[in-house]
Amino acid sequence: MIAFRPACSDDYSFALGLYTEAIRPLASAWMKWVDVDQEALFASLWHPNDTMIITLDDRDIGWVEFRQAEDELFLKQLYISPAYQRRGIGSRVMRLLLEERCRMAKSMALFVLKNNPALRFYTRHGFQIVRETHTTLVMRCAMAEAA
C-alpha cells in the first residue's frame, strides 16, 4: 500500500541519495557535477517540513516536496527509487497528492529538466509546458484536469 509520512531530519541521507542518483546523470549534460557543491546546495534546499516520504508497505521508496503559493501548489521534488519505477507507483502517488491537495489549490506547477524522462510522465498526467529556460521546463495543470 502506498502512503505518505512526514519527513524528519533523519530522512536527509535517504533524500540526498535518491536526489543525487536521479539528478546527477541529467544535470551533468549542462554542468560539471561536483559532489561537495551539490550536497551543499541540497542541504540549503532541504525542507523536511514541506516533504513527505513515500512508503510502500512501510518501506521508504521515495519522497515528495511541495509548497503552497496562494491558489497554486508547487511540486518541488518527486523521486521514486529506481527499483520501484515503471510500476505505476508514480501515478498512484500523483493521484494521492491530487486527492489530498485538490481543495487547497486551483493548479499545480513544477519544473522539470528538459532531458528528464519524467517529462512524459507529467504530460500524461495533464501538465502542459507554460515556459522554458535553457535547462528546464515549467509545467502547469489545473487541479481538476490532473490525475
Rank of each mutant, 00 (worst) to 15 (best):
R24V: 13
F74Y: 13
S81C: 12
Q128A: 09
T123R: 11
L119A: 03
G88E: 14
S91D: 14
K106F: 00
G126H: 02
Y122N: 05
V138R: 10
E70T: 08
M31A: 11
K106H: 01
L16V: 03
L110W: 04
W33E: 13
M1H: 07
E65G: 13
L45P: 02
Q68L: 12
Y12N: 04
E132H: 08
R101A: 02
Y19C: 03
T135H: 14
E65I: 03
E65V: 12
A109P: 02
W30N: 11
R59H: 10
R101D: 06
I129P: 01
D35L: 15
K32V: 13
A146C: 14
V112A: 07
I129M: 02
M52L: 12
R120Q: 05
D50K: 06
V64I: 09
G17N: 00
S44E: 14
A144D: 00
H125C: 01
L78N: 04
D58E: 13
A144R: 00
D57L: 04
D37Q: 14
D11W: 01
A3W: 03
D35E: 15
D50W: 07
R24Q: 13
R87V: 07
D35W: 13
F74L: 11
P25M: 08
A7S: 11
A69T: 09
R5F: 10
Q77D: 12
Q68D: 04
E21S: 14
I54T: 01
T135W: 07
L113I: 11
E70K: 14
A109F: 05
D58I: 02
W30M: 05
S9P: 00
A27D: 09
A83E: 14
V130W: 04
S9Q: 08
C8A: 04
D11R: 00
H134P: 01
A109R: 14
V93F: 07
F42T: 13
T135Q: 15
T123Q: 12
A40G: 11
I2W: 07
I23N: 04
I80T: 11
A109S: 14
A40N: 15
A15C: 15
V93W: 14
A3F: 07
I80A: 03
S9V: 05
R124F: 00
M108A: 11
M108G: 03
W63I: 07
V64A: 05
L98W: 08
R95V: 01
E132S: 10
A118W: 03
D10C: 08
Q38N: 14
A109Y: 09
F42D: 11
V130E: 11
L110M: 12
E72N: 05
I54G: 02
F121Y: 03
D57K: 12
T135A: 10
A40Q: 15
I54C: 04
M52N: 07
R59G: 02
L26I: 15
L137F: 02
R24E: 15
A142G: 07
E21D: 08
P82M: 08
R24D: 11
Y84K: 10
K32H: 12
L119N: 02
M104A: 13
A142S: 06
R67K: 10
